[in-house]
């Protein structure tokens, strides 16, 4: 792997018209660093399910099925840390207080049976998700990648992530919420009840509830609390 490989990847990333083509290319590049598997996904938060958030799935098939079926995203320290980190990190650099939890240790033990022993995660901002991450996995225990290789991987992953969201049609859209929905959501965010909001805005409580249903659906979440969290993160509201 040279700098050329990384910059060539960046230069051609927009030529990939499908997620499959993008995955094949990124995987090829990652294999030069010793990473055989990768996943590019929105990072699940607040009990979100992983599966609908995945853009590129290059995880071992059996492992992905198990991970989703058992909802491992809640307990996997790598996944939890990816939601909190504004910078890339090796799996081994995840804080020990997260890694050492029994549920996490069990998950990582099982992952090793699928050839996932060490890895590297690149996180990036997303307009659609809490944030987006690429996790690269290697069958080599304690794989060490040097600073320059990390920079190359981070750059490629960031461009791949942005392109994947574009292919999925998640970019270039207008604001998902109406002005009124944002207004109602902001009142919820500062702790007002539906009744109080109805009175403040001089609308019926039923209308408030309808607005809440709409913004939850548009943001793909089940609870208003979760909608508040996502909307603040995506800067749709600023309570």
């Amino acid at each position: 792997m040279t700098d050329d490989d990384a910059f060539d990847f960046v230069a051609r990333v927009d030529e990939h018209k499908t997620l499959d083509a993008l995955l094949t290319d990124l995987r090829q590049q990652a294999s030069n660093f010793g990473f055989e598997h990768l996943i590019l996904t929105g990072v699940p938060v607040g009990g979100q399910r992983l599966e609908p958030l995945v853009a590129l799935n290059g995880w071992p098939e059996g492992w992905f099925k198990r991970y989703v079926a058992k909802d491992y995203a809640r307990h996997d320290a790598v996944c939890v840390h990816a939601a909190q980190s504004f910078r890339s990190f090796a799996w081994s650099e995840v804080p020990r207080r997260l890694l050492d939890r029994p549920a996490c240790k069990r998950i990582h033990g099982e992952a090793s049976e699928f050839g996932l022993l060490s890895g590297y995660v690149v996180t990036m901002s997303s307009e659609h998700h809490w944030n987006t991450a690429v996790s690269f996995g290697s069958p080599e225990d304690g794989l060490v990648i040097n600073k320059r290789d990390r920079a190359r991987l981070s750059l490629m992953a960031t461009y791949a992530g942005a392109r994947a969201e574009e292919i999925l049609g998640l970019t270039g859209q207008a604001d998902p919420l109406t002005h009124r929905e944002k207004e109602v959501l902001t009142h919820f965010a500062v702790g007002r009840t539906a009744g109080a909001i109805a009175e403040l805005l001089s609308i019926s409580e039923r209308t408030v509830v309808q607005h809440a249903e709409n913004f939850r659906r548009k943001l793909g979440v089940k609870s208003t609390v979760h909608a508040v969290a996502i909307a603040i993160k995506r800067r749709l509201i600023m309570p």
Binding site: M124, S126, T158
Partner: peptide
């Protein structure tokens, strides 16, 4: 910041 580079794509 690299983290925010995708915003241009958006």
């Amino acid at each position: 910041e690299l983290f925010f580079l995708p915003k241009w794509k958006h």
